[in-house]
């Protein structure tokens, strides 16, 4: 068998993948590479850590959700497979999961009275979406100094570096270096992509990396009390909420990887059989 062809192809693809990965490099200055933090869901066999997702959801709910929406998420998602409140007992209908029901019921959502047609408030059900903190993007921007807090539903897929990027932003706030002019509603973060050239008054060859982010440092140590007794350091909260957002961005990741392993095993066996068949058919043909 001619492995050389396969190898050539594989290396070609690897080169292309690298080219693609390198593509979103920034024009100038750039940001620091995200911190090297390990998550349980990384790698081809990685899975989400349910306890971590529960803690992460708590951080989202108590801190992030004050400003950030998660428009694509419904309460029922919390109880689905590989989610924070997944319980195999409610496999057939995660809507019946009591945790999920209780969480949903803590929220009030808008509805229309089916008889009078008047707008009413009612308790949320698992089928309802997470309520947004603001009625629309304009209101969100107006309440936050002109910069609307982005929706977090797919944030880990929408930023290069994924969960590590989110973690790095949340833990990356530092005092701006001397010579950097920080305007109102601006916060320096070396992990946030931007171009600080115009705000920099120091050496022009050494513009600091990073950018100005409108969000002030959102998390501090001890801000969220974890129900499982985990020590609530800044890093812990940041890591847990990053994991939660990574899960929300790609809730089928575990199922995807597990399917992938089965598919790869099948294809490898199939390839072996076909190769044997190929050798037998071509036996005796000089070519």
């Amino acid at each position: 068998m001619k492995l050389s062809v396969v190898k050539t192809l594989a290396s070609g693809v690897a080169a292309l993948a690298l080219a693609g990965a390198a593509a979103p490099a920034l024009a100038s200055g750039g940001a620091e590479h995200p911190k090297e933090v390990a998550f349980s869901f990384e790698g081809p066999l990685g899975k989400f850590d349910q306890a971590q997702l529960q803690r992460g959801y708590k951080v989202y709910r108590e801190v992030c959700s004050a400003c950030h929406s998660m428009n694509l998420m419904s309460f029922r998602n919390l109880g689905q497979e590989s989610g924070p409140f997944w319980d195999p007992k409610f496999k057939h209908n995660p809507n019946d999961n009591p945790y999920v029901k209780a969480i949903a019921a803590e929220y009030e959502v808008d509805d229309i009275d089916s008889e009078t047609g008047e707008p009413v408030k009612r308790k949320a059900t698992p089928a309802d979406k997470f309520p947004s903190p603001y009625p629309n993007a304009t209101a969100a921007a107006a309440a936050n100094g002109g910069a609307a807090p982005p929706d977090l539903s797919v944030m880990a897929k929408a930023r290069h570096g994924g969960a590590r990027y989110i973690y790095s932003i949340l833990t990356g706030y530092v005092n701006p270096p001397a010579g950097l002019h920080v305007g109102p509603n601006q916060h320096y973060n070396p992990y946030f992509p931007g171009d600080l050239t115009s705000a920099w008054h120091g050496d022009h060859k050494n513009v600091p990396k990073g950018g100005f982010i409108a969000m002030p440092q959102p998390l501090t140590a001890g801000q969220v009390t974890f129900d499982d007794g985990t020590k609530s350091t800044l890093e812990q909260q940041a890591k847990d909420v990053s994991a939660f957002i990574a899960w929300a961005s790609d809730p089928k990741a575990t199922e995807r990887k597990q399917t992938g392993v089965a598919v790869m095993i099948f294809l490898a066996l199939f390839a072996g059989l076909t190769y044997a068949s190929y050798r037998r058919i071509w036996r005796g043909i000089a070519h």
């Binding site: 292309l16 993948a17 693609g20 979103p24 081809p44 995807r256 992938g260 790869m264």
Partner: peptide, 10 residues
């Protein structure tokens, strides 16, 4: 199955 967004853009 293992890197579905590698060839796309965030």
């Amino acid at each position: 199955f293992f890197n579905p967004n590698a060839l796309g853009h965030a």
